[in-house]
């Protein structure tokens, strides 16, 4: 699987925020995009995910594994997202959050997959807990598991470590990168923090509307 962006550009109220650029994200690779606030990093993610809202407009093609995503609503793109906030649904237990996006199928198999994922993440026994009772780091891990259990074809990370305490960040980075690598899917991350860039990972800089390699 690979995620391709071709001649993608973002405009805001008539002026160009990101000039047309082309790139290809191979599977199992995490590409980091850095740029100042307001440069359009998060807007680019919204465009790829399919929920760009006014006053932003965009042109260009996004293909995932050869499938053109143009015009598809977010729910049909199979692109997972992580935000600054974990956004666990407060009216659902941890287990229900994880099952929410898991493809339909036999009830027992789904539960087994959910329990295994929790156990592997060191969260065995948390299934029936309300998300509000978990620590920030635990919630962030559940949010990632929730995305991955929906079997996405690619992941978009929008400053996912920004709101965590410094001492939690390193551990969570490892956790996120390891899990995404295990899924063997392409991943695009935007961040402010150079320390977020995975070791040896590709880093892109967004400045004056241009995306270029660091």
């Amino acid at each position: 699987m690979a995620l391709s962006l071709e001649e993608v550009s973002i405009r805001l109220d008539g002026h160009t925020l990101i000039k047309p650029f082309t790139m290809r994200l191979e599977k199992g690779v995490i590409v980091t995009l850095m740029g100042p606030s307001g440069s359009g990093k998060s807007t680019l993610l919204s465009f790829i995910a399919g929920d760009l809202t006014a006053p932003f407009t965009a042109t260009g093609d996004v293909t995932l594994d050869g499938r053109n995503l143009d015009g598809l609503p977010p729910e049909k793109r199979r692109i997972g997202r992580l935000f600054q906030d974990d956004l666990l649904f407060p009216h659902m237990s941890v287990a229900e959050n994880l099952l929410f996006g898991m493809p339909r199928g036999e009830q027992q198999a789904r539960h087994a997959a959910m329990t295994a994922a929790l156990a592997e993440a060191g969260l065995a026994g948390f299934a029936e807990r309300p998300p509000q009772t978990l620590s920030g780091g635990q919630r962030a891990r559940v949010a990632l598991l929730r995305s991955l259990l929906a079997s996405p074809g690619a992941m978009l990370l929008d400053e996912p470590f920004n709101k965590l305490d410094a001492d939690l960040r390193a551990g969570l980075r490892d956790f996120v990168f390891r899990h995404i690598a295990a899924r063997d899917i392409p991943c695009l991350m935007v961040t402010h923090d150079r320390a977020d860039v995975p070791p040896g990972g590709r880093l892109l800089l967004l400045g004056r509307g241009e995306v270029r390699d660091a």
């Binding site: 929920d51 609503p73 977010p74 729910e75 906030d85 929730r146």
Partner: peptide, 23 residues
């Protein structure tokens, strides 16, 4: 709260707009 972003997450997890609203 985060209702707007929760809707986005639910959509990225494969739920159509009607399902997001109901669930």
């Amino acid at each position: 709260g985060h209702l707007t972003q929760e809707r986005r997450v639910a959509a990225s997890l494969g739920h159509g707009a009607g399902s997001v609203w109901l669930r």
